[in-house]
């Protein structure tokens, strides 16, 4: 098995969850209605918890730093999250659409990892799957309601979709060594995951009256998996790590 590629695979999966979890948490006390405030806080808690469990596998199995150190004390260029998750929340339309695009991708990724021969990762995938079901249900409900809502809500969801589509495709940027992992049956290729993802979301978008993009004509925003990020990641990492940087030995 190409161990370093597997480590990078786990790291990028964790980094996506950590950063999007942090973005979700920014809705705390700012949600448009209290139920949505709670929904985004809960999903944030799930995602950060999942990231922690993945970092813990890197720590215990591969000798990486402690999960807190990994999460908060890396240089920006060492994060391998896709740029989609770094973008500011924008309006609720943008946040919902990102949540929809991301969680469907996460769902197909987790389903593919359930049979991963590296057991610690398969075990986590089996666990996270049940949690992400609720995230997907939540996203689907809102995409349907707002897509089929008023002209204004529909237009706003369409704009959010069109803006985020190139970033969403960046979730499927292959990491170095992926080919080898795929050939060894460790992971499913990003190309296959993307196809499964499109097959899952296109009918939901259509039912919501939204025009699914012509995915093949969109240039994906890539680079995140190699440590190239948008201008938004550095300030986000600074904010996440603010307390820990003041006192790295702090007891919570």
């Amino acid at each position: 098995m190409n161990t370093s590629a597997l480590e990078n695979y786990i790291l990028k999966t964790a980094d996506d969850l950590l950063v999007l979890g942090h973005r979700h948490s920014e809705w705390t006390a700012f949600g448009p209605v209290i139920e949505e405030d709670i929904a985004f806080c809960s999903m944030a808690q799930d995602k950060v918890g999942q990231a922690q469990a993945l970092y813990n596998v890197l720590h215990t199995t591969f000798g990486y730093d402690h999960p807190d150190t990994l999460a908060f004390l890396r240089e920006e260029g060492k994060y391998t999250c896709a740029q989609l998750v770094e973008l500011p929340n924008g309006g609720y339309d943008t946040s919902l659409m990102r949540h929809f695009l991301f969680d469907h991708a996460e769902r197909v990724r987790l389903a593919s990892l359930v049979s991963c021969p590296f057991e610690p990762l398969a075990n986590l995938a089996k666990k996270f799957k049940g949690e992400v079901e609720y995230h997907v249900l939540h996203a689907n409900t809102w995409i349907d309601q707002l897509g089929n809502g008023t002209e204004v809500s529909k237009a706003r969801m369409q704009t959010a979709l069109d803006e985020l589509a190139p970033y969403a495709l960046g979730l499927f940027e292959a990491i170095e060594g992926e080919q080898e992992l795929v050939e060894q049956g460790v992971v499913v290729s990003e190309q296959d995951l993307q196809a499964q993802w499109q097959a899952a979301i296109d009918p939901i978008l259509e039912k919501a009256g939204l025009a699914a993009p012509d995915w093949s004509s969109i240039t994906p925003v890539v680079g995140g998996r190699k440590g190239y990020h948008s201008e938004y990641l550095a300030p986000l990492v600074k904010e996440m790590s603010e307390v820990l940087v003041i006192d790295t030995e702090v007891e919570w």
Binding site: E35, E36, I38, C41, S42, D46, Y134, L137, H138
Partner: peptide, 13 residues
């Protein structure tokens, strides 16, 4: 069901 998320991770409202 009002919302699948509640005051703790394990509860819906």
């Amino acid at each position: 069901m009002q919302t699948p998320f509640g005051p703790t991770l394990c509860r819906s409202i």
